[in-house]
């Protein structure tokens, strides 16, 4: 039902957990990426490029067996260009489109940020940008598994990138990027790479205001998805908000191995669930199911089978 992928590299570019609120001050583009060619990229793209470098370094020889046409990129984002669009739109309203910066005009389309990562490494396979609220990052892993199964790719960078939203008082801001190197299990095994572990992801979408039989049907869909990923076999960690959808998810997902464990609240975008996935992949007790849901109706579940004895290599943050 849900194909598994092996995670052979992790790259994280995010502010320190104990640091100040997201405002970009923690990141220096010249130090992280170099003096030329990166300064005018949207911040989310800069974070993505750094995380991509870390992930490829971390996965060591992962490029050896994959031709450039078989290497792909799948990235989730919700607010990767929200701040840029806000700035551009205010310029148009107050002045004129001719006052827009020519170097940022191409980023009207968010997929250009993802494509910049494809360009950076010459990846000519698939390049997809996903934008489902909250779950787009985890969805990138699911889409990656599907791409392997369909023969569209043999090596993927899958990730999430976000930049603080222009209305921080109305949403918990998040900044940074996570990139995972994904490989099909048989390919990783062939090159002797055990990686951090295997993942399989389900994404679901529920309508609002469910009652009666519609609610029962939604509960059945949630339960089927959770059980298909082994929710009754491993600890369940959850990032849930205060929405009715999250309440429904919390009640429907079977948690046979102890109560559902709180993995913190989700924020404004798709980054936090991917940071938690990276955490689980690096944790000694990593075998688990991670569940997240939001008031939009979006739900994602990721099962993690951690490789016994694997230890974090260079998958450090910025």
């Amino acid at each position: 039902m849900s194909s598994q992928v092996v995670v052979t590299g992790i790259g994280v570019c995010a502010p320190p957990a104990e640091g100040p609120a997201a405002d970009g001050a923690w990141f220096d583009v010249r130090t992280q990426l170099g003096r030329r060619g990166y300064k005018y990229l949207p911040a989310a793209c800069q974070y993505l490029l750094v995380a991509g470098r870390h992930a490829l370094d971390d996965a060591v020889d992962c490029l050896d067996g994959a031709a450039e046409e078989d290497r792909g990129v799948v990235v989730g984002t919700n607010n990767g260009v929200a701040a840029l669009h806000d700035e551009q739109d205010r310029t148009v309203i107050a002045e004129h489109a001719n006052e827009l910066s020519p170097v940022t005009a191409p980023f009207g389309a968010v997929n250009v940020l993802t494509s910049r990562l494809s360009m950076e490494h010459g990846f000519k396979g698939i390049s997809l940008t996903l934008t489902s609220p909250l779950v787009a990052g985890l969805e990138s892993v699911q889409v990656g598994a599907r791409a392997f199964a369909a023969g569209r790719s043999t090596l993927l960078l899958a990730g999430a990138m976000e930049q603080a939203v222009p209305a921080p008082e109305a949403a918990a801001p998040e900044e940074g990027a996570v990139v995972l190197v994904l490989e099909p299990p048989e390919q990783a095994e062939a090159r002797g790479a055990t990686g951090y572990g295997r993942c399989a992801v389900r994404t679901l979408l529920l309508p609002h205001g469910l009652t009666g039989t519609a609610r029962e049907r939604a509960e059945a869909v949630l339960r089927e998805a959770a059980l298909s990923l082994g929710a009754d076999q491993v600890p369940v960690y959850a990032l849930l908000d205060d929405s009715p959808v999250s309440e429904l998810v919390a009640g429907a997902v079977p948690a046979a191995v102890g109560p559902i464990r709180d993995a913190g609240p989700p924020a404004a975008g798709s980054l936090t669930p991917m940071l938690r996935l990276a955490d689980r992949l690096r944790a000694d007790d990593g075998d688990s199911l991670l569940v997240t849901a939001a008031g939009t109706g979006n739900v994602a579940m990721v099962r993690i089978w951690r490789t016994a004895g694997s230890t974090p290599r260079r998958s450090a943050g910025c």
Binding site: S132, P133, A136, T203, R217, V221
Partner: peptide, 27 residues
């Protein structure tokens, strides 16, 4: 603050619970 890219949520109102979903924003 809500993402501008939540169109799928409106479509889901027509379709009922969805077992799998993806939103692709490749321009």
């Amino acid at each position: 603050f809500t993402s501008a890219l939540g169109v799928a949520s409106e479509v889901a109102e027509r379709l009922g619970p969805l077992s799998v979903t993806t939103t692709i924003s490749n321009a």
